[in-house]
């Protein structure tokens, strides 16, 4: 597929999702994944702000603890916080030259193997609700076309959070945003339950959860809720596979 075809594909997919019943977290994950496919970047994440103006990682191109930590490190200072506070794009920030600007974040991002970072605001009229975070592992600037496409994907993410087309009141936005943040918390809780019950890492737990939701045509957030609060009847998801080694202590010791 040419790049143009891929682009069309991505936006058609987004439009298809938005007119149907969809899961907002799953949708944001898809958008983050598309960023890595379509743009010259190696990782992408979507950060949403809560009532304290604190940013939370809500979806990522790859759900790894290291990447999530990089998002969390930007709570005080980092490109996403800048894009969120100012509403202005942060593009081609050289991590090697950002140690004064964002000391902790720049160091951690470089340790993970990234050389540059970008943050595009998630905007709705005059409100900024979060940021799309993009990371590059190779030197070289992100081109203007990529920045424009990235911003378009950020806008698609914003529309996805709003969900109801045409209803743009502040109250509805706040309600949807709050719901997205809560759904993300539910997914973290479900990752913990699954990791413990199956003896796997939280990263693996997420992949399992997402794969299961897709294969069984379930909403990720709903499956996460049922897994987290123990009401899920997805036995094959929750049961520890027979062939895995059980920790020597067993579940009730240590």
């Amino acid at each position: 597929m040419t790049r143009e075809e891929q682009l069309i594909d991505a936006f058609v997919e987004a439009a298809d999702t938005l007119v149907a019943d969809f899961d907002v977290i799953e949708f944001l994950h898809t958008v983050a994944g598309r960023c890595v496919q379509l743009l010259d970047v190696d990782a992408a994440g979507i950060m949403l702000a809560d009532q304290y103006g604190q940013l939370h990682a809500t979806a990522a191109s790859t759900e790894s603890a290291r990447l999530l930590e990089l998002f969390e490190l930007q709570a005080d200072a980092g490109p996403c916080m800048e894009a969120f506070r100012t509403g202005v794009q942060v593009v081609n920030a050289d991590l090697g030259a950002s140690e004064e600007r964002w000391p902790r974040f720049a160091e951690a991002a470089q340790a993970t193997g990234f050389v540059s970072v970008h943050a595009l605001p998630l905007r709705l009229r005059t409100t900024v609700i979060g940021a799309l975070n993009l990371f590059c592992a190779r030197p070289g600037d992100l081109g203007e076309g990529d920045v424009r496409t990235g911003q378009a994907l950020a806008d698609v993410a914003t529309i996805g959070i709003l969900a109801q087309r045409g209803l743009y009141q502040a109250e509805l936005l706040a309600s949807q945003l709050q719901n997205a943040l809560s759904s993300r918390v539910t997914i973290e809780q479900a990752k913990g339950v699954l990791a413990e019950r199956r003896g796997i890492s939280v990263d693996e737990a997420f992949n399992l959860l997402r794969r299961y939701a897709r294969n069984h045509n379930l909403h990720l957030s709903e499956l996460a809720r049922q897994t987290a609060d123990g009401t899920s009847n997805a036995v094959e998801l929750l049961a520890r596979p027979q062939n895995t080694t059980v920790s020597p202590e067993g579940p009730d010791s240590a």
Binding site: L68, A75, E188, Q189, G192, V193, E196, A228
Partner: peptide, 24 residues
């Protein structure tokens, strides 16, 4: 302090609920 700050707090909550067999 907002509890929603760190993802690991919620992951740990899920793990502890499975360890103890209690609600989240």
């Amino acid at each position: 302090q907002p509890v929603t700050f760190r993802a690991q707090v919620h992951q740990a909550t899920g793990m502890i609920s499975a360890q103890l067999g209690v609600t989240l």
